[in-house]
Write a protein that binds this DNA or RNA. Structure first.
Lengths: 234, 234
DNA sequence: CCCGGTAATAAGTATATACTTAATCATTCC
DNA sequence: GGAATGATTAAGTATATACTTATTACCGGG
């Protein structure tokens, strides 16, 4: 159960950075010297340093050495979990409810994403995700049944399309777009809030090598939503 | 300029996953066999596999081998860049404008985060970030001048506190909280939108080893905001 | 004085080797 | 039959060694 050596090296270096002992832009000793200091092989230090660099704490350049990254360069990472997991994490009871399932011609924006011809149909699902007795998320999804023909048979009555898609369809890239909108009358009714209430809207587009697979619009009542952090797995 | 071997291994494995050739949950050959297949050392394969595991594409367990991760387990990562960089990335002109600077007792929520006594004062900054001729972000920030005494002297007239803090204060953790709210009269005026307009609100709390350093509330007009992705740096 | 070649340097990659640790499978014994 | 035990396997870690490559610093010639 002893901690790996490279991790120990990593955390002591990280502590020197976090404590301000090493300020932004300061150079660190080179790999070889650190290896001597810690009494280990250069590769061991190298691995610690590489991970620190991957995580954005330091910047490395050949010949120039390693220096503490100016914080500007590191973007804060936040992760979006799956809906039901997110709700579970809040110690709330998750419930899924399908509102609509149809095969229809998608709106222009979606049709374009799918590279559809006029009138070509896709699978359209609308559903609600509940956390305890409140609506947590309203999902409006279009699935490209040309790209994923198996989806056409699914009812998505007892579990969400997200769930199934994640486990059955390989994908390569996801694009997100976050914005805030006011609830129109229809949304307000379904989400059980007043019209005009601020909603957090997440648009998600999932691609595979063969093109766009699915497009989803997820709306949350403004109040409740994700708190995230920038953890360092020490 | 030739691609490192371990990266080549990594991408060909990734292609097998993405193409659906290897489905979710499928086992991959063990390190030794793959090493033979690719005609390289086990460590080289090991590194490729470790990175794939770090990035969430596969799951590894001792003795049990490596299998393709069920997508459920990987959270989508999105990164929040610095305001001015974000604006720059949009090819817009960035402008900073300070609206207020005072030393005052912070509201209860902030005072609690700072572990302040009643009446203890903090530095309060309100400012706007412009993208071309539109207000991109309204920032309302409290800085714990007990934790960061140097900040007390700064005017933050020509550049934002974010900028300075990032470069001068070591920190260990950032907590975020995203929500949507309707613009009240004051916000609407400053952001140059109609009252009731949906705003994207980001609350950010920055901690160091010695406690909470700063708390910021960042508001965006609903329309414009970050598009993010889940890239794989092949 | 600047320009460009070159040497020195530090990070990066690759390999062989050896040992550790966790997990699973199969066997044995009660 | 079922639990304890031990063997086996595959990932994980650590080290020495060697070679590659990008970049800087220096130095000499035009």
């Amino acid at each position: 159960m002893t901690k790996p050596l490279y991790k120990a090296v990593k955390t002591t270096l990280l502590e020197r950075i976090r404590s301000g002992d090493l300020a932004f832009g300061d150079p660190l000793p080179n790999d070889a010297d650190l290896a001597e200091e810690f009494g280990c092989a250069r590769l061991t230090v190298h691995r610690a340093m590489r991970e620190l660099a991957d995580e954005g704490y330091v910047e490395r350049r050949r010949r120039a050495g390693t220096r503490v990254a100016t914080r500007a360069s590191r973007g804060v990472q936040l992760s979006i979990a799956r809906v039901d997991e997110e709700i579970f994490a809040r110690h709330a009871v998750y419930r899924y409810e399908r509102l609509l399932r149809e095969k229809a011609a998608p709106p222009a924006a979606v049709a374009t994403a799918f590279a559809f011809n006029a009138g070509q149909k896709a699978l359209h699902i609308r559903c609600r995700h509940w956390a305890d007795d409140r609506v947590f998320q309203l999902e409006d999804r279009w699935i490209n049944i040309d790209a994923v023909p198996e989806a056409a048979e699914k009812a998505f009555l007892h579990y969400g399309p997200n769930h199934w898609l994640l486990e059955h369809v390989p994908f390569s890239e996801v694009r997100h777009d976050i914005s805030a909108v006011c609830a129109n009358a229809a949304d307000a009714a379904v989400l059980e809030v007043a019209a005009g209430h601020a909603l957090l809207r997440l648009r998600r587009m999932t691609m595979s090598t063969s093109g766009c697979i699915t497009v989803a619009e997820l709306k949350h009542p403004g109040e409740l939503f994700s708190l995230c952090s920038d953890p360092h797995p020490a």
